[in-house]
Design a binder for these strands. Structure first.
Lengths: 148, 148
DNA sequence: TCCATTCGTAGGTACGCACCTACTATAGGT
DNA sequence: ACCTATAGTAGGTGCGTACCTACGAATGGA
């Protein structure tokens, strides 16, 4: 039984469905480790940009500070990151990724790669590259004024 | 403050973010009419395939039958569809779209078009067409075995 | 006639996600 | 010393979504 063509003609619909599936498949894999997408995002931020104050993580990832605390909690419990008080300002907590955290991130990225391969399976390598380029341009445009 | 490149390198992430934004923007517009995405999906199914038994709508759209009932409730209240009992099997309810429902669907599709234009703004027309083609192929592949 | 099955529906449950609030500790200017 | 602002955190709220359950009405085969 087919889906309505009227719906499929809307790129908005197709885009949201694909995105939802992508998200769901990745979430599912992270869940087997007791993690969510935010945990991965935090690890990636720490790996790419080095230690952060929690507030910086919140603003970089656009995540509420109280939720950052919770995400960090579980990462600390798993030994993937460590918290240490900033001696210069003892209100602040500097968060850094541990070697274990880096290797965890590597595994998560591998999982994400598998999910991507599954989703983009219908496309050949050059098409994937082309799609990826276009998606990035679209993504960059999302936060531009006027697109909304 | 930039997002982590490690994250952006994952098409899975970008895809889910774009999809989420697309969904959010369309939902937002539908919400001004007291509708959700499912209402639009049901209208599209009725417009494309004609009247449905509620069970058929459920299986076509992969929506739980008890939720179909609720979606239809609000569409009936708005005069967009009508329910009538199937005389051959009085357990069944045939649902059909009304002229008002068709014009409503037209407006919703126009809204969806606006959302699409906003999101795909960074691309020129031929790129959009190319993206659309690829997205459809990807979408069709989602339900294929082995992609998961 | 009886019984298992199917349809629609009301009501409730569970979960993820984003957000808010109140509180403690600390900082830094006046 | 005082006052205001800031950092982190615990706990809770609200929303959307999906799912499940129980029930009455109707069907159709044994």
């Amino acid at each position: 039984m087919d889906l309505p063509p009227s719906l499929l003609r809307l790129d908005t619909y197709v885009l949201s469905k694909i995105g939802k599936t992508a998200r769901a498949r990745l979430s599912e894999r992270l869940a087997t480790r007791g993690l969510r997408l935010w945990h991965m995002a935090v690890l990636a931020a720490l790996a790419d940009f080095g230690p952060h104050i929690q507030r910086e993580l919140a603003s970089r990832l656009d995540l509420h500070p109280s939720d950052v605390a919770k995400v960090i909690d579980t990462l600390v419990a798993g030994g993937a990151v460590e918290r240490r008080q900033d001696p210069a300002d003892r209100r602040r907590v500097r968060v850094d990724i541990t070697p274990a955290g880096r290797s965890l991130l590597g595994e998560l990225e591998h999982e994400a790669g598998t999910v991507r391969d599954g989703i983009l399976a219908p496309l050949n390598p050059s098409e994937r590259a082309e799609l990826s380029r276009m998606l990035h341009r679209v993504f960059d445009g999302l936060h531009a004024p006027g697109s909304h």
